[in-house]
Amino acid sequence: MLVVPIKEGENIDRALKRYKRKFDKTGRKRALQTRKQYTKPSIARRALVQKAQYVQKLRDAEEV
């Protein structure tokens, strides 16, 4: 459970922003999205390989 203490005289919007930031850092939202539908292991591996190729291409372009 996330707890965001609100300081005296603090704006509620600011506290809500801190809560959202904490929630994003926990990774719960991303985990829920990935569990929404099943992805085959071969598809997941293919996505990792494609991402690695993309990153490598960016690094190669940066060096030149």
Rank of each mutant, 00 (worst) to 15 (best):
V3G: 02
E63V: 12
E10C: 10
D60T: 11
A44V: 10
P5H: 08
E62T: 05
T26V: 13
K25M: 04
L2Y: 09
G27V: 02
Y19W: 00
V4W: 07
Q56Y: 01
I6L: 12
I43N: 07
D13M: 06
E63S: 14
R28E: 15
R18L: 00
I12R: 13
T26P: 01
K57Q: 05
Y19H: 02
Y54K: 13
Q37E: 13
L58G: 08
K57L: 01
T26S: 15
G9P: 01
A44E: 10
K36T: 04
L48I: 08
R21M: 12
E63H: 13
R30P: 00
I43P: 03
E8R: 09
L48M: 14
A44T: 11
Y38S: 04
V4A: 10
K22E: 13
Y54L: 10
Q37T: 06
T26H: 10
A47D: 02
P5N: 08
A52L: 05
T34C: 07
L16H: 02
D60G: 12
R30C: 03
R35N: 15
R18C: 10
S42G: 02
R59K: 10
K40N: 07
I6G: 02
I12D: 08
K36M: 08
L58V: 11
A47W: 00
I6S: 04
G27N: 06
E62R: 12
V64P: 07
E10G: 14
K51G: 04
Q50V: 06
A15S: 11
Q33N: 15
A61Q: 08
G9L: 00
R21G: 13
G9I: 02
T26Q: 15
Y19C: 06
K20R: 14
E10Y: 07
K25T: 12
V64G: 15
Q53Y: 15
Y54T: 01
G27T: 07
Q50I: 07
I43V: 10
D24Q: 09
V49S: 05
R45E: 15
K22P: 00
A31T: 03
Q33D: 11
E63C: 07
D24A: 09
R21I: 14
V64A: 12
L16A: 14
I12N: 09
V49Q: 09
R46P: 04
R35S: 07
A47L: 04
P41N: 07
P5M: 00
M1L: 12
K22F: 10
T39C: 09
G27I: 04
N11S: 15
L58M: 12
E62D: 11
K7P: 03
P5D: 03
L2F: 13
R59S: 06
T34Q: 11
R18I: 00
K40C: 12
K57S: 02
Y19K: 04
V4H: 03
V3F: 13
I12G: 11
V3P: 02
D13P: 00
L32S: 07
R46C: 06
A44Y: 08
S42T: 11
K29W: 08
K20D: 11
R14C: 05
T26A: 13
Q50T: 07
A47S: 05
A47Y: 09
G9K: 00
T26R: 12
R45K: 15
T26I: 15
V4R: 00
K36Q: 13
D13A: 09
P41S: 05
R30K: 09
R28N: 12
V55C: 01
R59Y: 09
A47I: 01
K36R: 14
S42H: 11
K25E: 12
